[in-house]
């Protein structure tokens, strides 16, 4: 059924890579987002300024420009370093470059989402935690995190959906994702519409499943809160 003139398996393989890039980028974005949000709320002015520069740069430039900047620029930096150290030439892996770029960009969006979510948790609760003698990690793990998830989920969901669609761009820097596999198949079979349509359906499936999962998560993390009657 999913033969597609013999290219079905290849496109499917690309779909897995797309998903892998997206999930790896998400992981990096969440880590950067938490660090960024912590920096933005830190008492140190330098740290706050650094986080602001990061989010402004990442959110002000297009994904594609940043991706090309990091891919080509990163390769140049690596070349200079290996030259200086007298090492052999190292090729930047497009998977790593793609994940780094998308993770860096969406880390900035996550920073804003998480910052808002942290601020939405009443401060008194955190102070109460400290008053009980919990340390910073315990307050984060037991009080801040469970409540901030609820506030962060809608923004997190949006970021994830945008991130997922941004992964289509990694084909530009030569990663064999679903988009590139489809391009190759389209060139060989002269059926571009068929293959790009399959890619569109693939992305639609990914986003639809994501929306359902996010809706379930939002319900779960809102348990115990009075829902507003609409």
């Amino acid at each position: 059924m999913f033969d597609l003139h013999g290219y079905g398996a290849s496109v499917l393989e690309g779909a897995w890579l797309t998903l892998a890039v997206a999930l790896a980028s998400l992981l990096l974005a969440v880590v950067l987002g938490l660090a960024g949000a912590a920096a933005k709320l830190a008492p140190l002015r330098g740290l706050r300024a650094l986080a602001t520069v990061y989010t402004t740069l990442m959110r002000g430039m297009p994904d594609l420009v940043l991706m090309l900047l990091i891919f080509f620029g990163g390769q140049m930096l690596v070349n200079r370093i290996t030259d200086a150290l007298g090492w052999d030439y190292i090729d930047i892996d497009p998977f790593v470059a793609g994940v780094m770029t998308i993770g860096l960009i969406f880390g900035a969006y996550m920073t804003e989402t998480f910052r808002g979510a942290i601020l939405a948790v009443p401060k008194g609760q955190l102070e109460a935690g400290y008053a009980y003698g919990m340390n910073g990690w315990q307050v984060f793990r037991r009080i801040l995190l469970p409540q901030m998830v609820r506030y962060a989920l809608p923004g997190f969901g949006n970021n994830w959906l945008v991130l997922l669609k941004t992964t289509a761009l990694v084909s530009v820097i030569g990663l064999d994702d679903m988009m590139r596999k489809a391009s190759l198949a389209a060139g060989a079979t002269r059926m571009p519409f068929t293959f790009y349509f399959v890619v569109a359906l693939g992305f639609l499936a990914f986003t639809s499943v994501s929306v359902l999962l996010l809706r379930w998560a939002e319900r779960r993390y809102s348990a115990g809160f009075v829902r507003r009657e609409e």
């Binding site: 669609k165 988009m179 002269r190 571009p192 790009y196 569109a200 992305f203 639609l204």
Partner: peptide
């Protein structure tokens, strides 16, 4: 739903490369 659920790049390729198939 369909245009929000798929990347702009795919939509652009469908129109630019895809339509010529017919």
């Amino acid at each position: 739903y369909c245009f929000r659920g798929t990347p702009l790049l795919v939509q652009m390729f469908l129109i630019y490369y895809g339509l010529g198939q017919f």
